[in-house]
Nucleic acid binder design. Sequence first.
DNA 1: AGGGCTTACGTAAGCGTTTACGTGGCCAAA
DNA 2: TTTGGCCACGTAAACGCTTACGTAAGCCCT
Lengths: 369, 369
Amino acid sequence: MARANSEDVARHAGVSIATVSHVINGTRFVSEETRQKVQDAIKALNYRPNAVARGLATSFTRKIGVVVSEIRNPFFTATARGIEDEVIRQRYNIILCNTDEDPEREDAVLHLLGAQQVDGLIIAPTGARSETLLGLAKAGVPIVQIDRSSPGLDAPLIDVNNEEGAYQAISYLIGLGHTRIACLINLDVISTQTERLQGWERALREAGLPVDESLIVRADPRFFGGTPDAKASITRHNLPGASEVLQGLFTLPQRPSAIFVASNQLTLGTLYAFRASGLRCPEDISLISFDDHDWAPIFNPPLTVMRQPTYQLGQIAAQLLMKMINGEAVSAPPHLQVELIKRSSCAPPRASNFEGLNNDHAKEVSAAK
Amino acid sequence: MARANSEDVARHAGVSIATVSHVINGTRFVSEETRQKVQDAIKALNYRPNAVARGLATSFTRKIGVVVSEIRNPFFTATARGIEDEVIRQRYNIILCNTDEDPEREDAVLHLLGAQQVDGLIIAPTGARSETLLGLAKAGVPIVQIDRSSPGLDAPLIDVNNEEGAYQAISYLIGLGHTRIACLINLDVISTQTERLQGWERALREAGLPVDESLIVRADPRFFGGTPDAKASITRHNLPGASEVLQGLFTLPQRPSAIFVASNQLTLGTLYAFRASGLRCPEDISLISFDDHDWAPIFNPPLTVMRQPTYQLGQIAAQLLMKMINGEAVSAPPHLQVELIKRSSCAPPRASNFEGLNNDHAKEVSAAK
DNA sequence: AGGGCTTACGTAAGCGTTTACGTGGCCAAA
DNA sequence: TTTGGCCACGTAAACGCTTACGTAAGCCCT
């Protein structure tokens, strides 16, 4: 059963094809009588306007591209959902693409999206400068960046204040009495990681603590414990992951009493390293990590985290993009705020004073003394 | 800078627009000389074919619709990723939509996808019969269903053997010595849930155990501990979630010694209920649940699960769909297999015999006696 | 020499919309 | 009776491709 087109509708209603277009879009006055005839014809023929043809005619396709590194990363999953909820209300669709942080794959999907004539683009760019991305921008495609920014690209960026978030996390640990705080970051060259590293350093410096470079460790992001295929496609650099790297660190004579995990993809490996090294958290080592997880509150111990407003981040990015698509002037919004969620994976270091305690586990530890 | 079109290229190369099209698509012989001129022109003008126009002309848009209930559900996240990896190789894009198991929203997104002239559709349908979906099928849109099937729709279904998986899970528990095994299922009307319930019942019957209806509990699926906005959009029925429902069950005089969780969205709530009720797992109660999680191996205890090949499920669905789009004859594939991943959340019930033990924790418990 | 075949490419219709412009009918004012 | 204007709608070009069909040039064969 071939789909009816507007010509069929016009014939059926005894009007011109222009009129059916106008009743559909409400773009000019049509008498009540003819409008009714057209509506009836549409019903009778089960007519649905062809968005592709409309796209050709208007150059608006009602599709936006969403490109992230990996949709299985809960950060992006939630963000994508925020985006979709926002745009679907305006009858827009999202085309989802993964880059795996690979500039080549990024290039490929950007070409496809460009060909698809998306009305706009929300992208978490890889670290590499992308001529293709710059080309899209120059061609007038509205773009908003999320989480990180692409070199040379002048497009609004929606992200959190990573440096400040890390600073808060480290300050919290310092307040608990820690002085040797490791910082675990992602090997991928993403600006978020260096920003968080800077926050780590600043907190240390401001507290008058030594900045020991040997406490900065980098690991290959990977899914831990996922299905085999997932694992294969996610291990990117084929270099040691968080658990391997940390088990080395933990055997050091002067091991840290706390660890700050700057990437949500590294948390599971860290937890595994604790277990493998026989370290109890928070008794032997404290943990604070970026990004909340849905399992974090019921983990043992419940994880203290820096929560990012992921869903909201997607919403805001989408709202901004829609404004740009509609030709409204927009200004780069401020950073979103991260939130310190105190649960129980941070406690004062052992054999230290307990001033500044303010969570249950710390009190338990204190009481146990 | 307006984008060049094929006419610009033709003019620049001194050939006709038809020739440009043919060198791009390789659809007819073009002399090496002219081919070269066209290629040069394409480079010079940075020409990219407009997929929308091509779509209008050929009626193939190189887009497929992917509709799931909730992309934040890791099951669908992995599946979507499998789909994308598969179709991107053929330069196809996916349009992602969420339904929240809401027939109305499903209807809305299906209309949009229909208008967008997707070449095919991969859908995890809601339980409700959908005229819109049936209409798309009748209009000739290739469709493959995943996870569950839609009433009245004749389209291949890619899923796992839910009944058998549940049967295996329960049989495993029975082998461990359990006789009172609760079954926690999702309130949403999805066929997977009833199938798993049937597996539960069959295993019990075949073992000659009583089928106690009071051990079947239903809960509202919801994210537990997620961000506030996530929670709001996910709680669907505004009815008690897993943790509330189970805490009731656990205070019963004859509480179950094991629980089978039939939905991955209910596992976190179950774990929370354990904690809230002061129940230790697996010492006081055993747990086996559908779907693996990336945090399951490092949870305390590591969770024994029925793993579904989620990523692969997406791949297979995509492969099948591509064949259908290419007009090849396809046959409905067999169920995918679920896999019992034995970790440590299942142990023999206390004060019972220990025959049939086969996991570490069970042995520990045994040894501890 | 003329017809026919091949080679390499051009012409133009068509895909299903939107939209600038045109037009017939009717009514009121001159 | 004109004329002008409004009202309600139709005509046709345009969007950027694909593709069926047409065609000019060159060659071979009789």
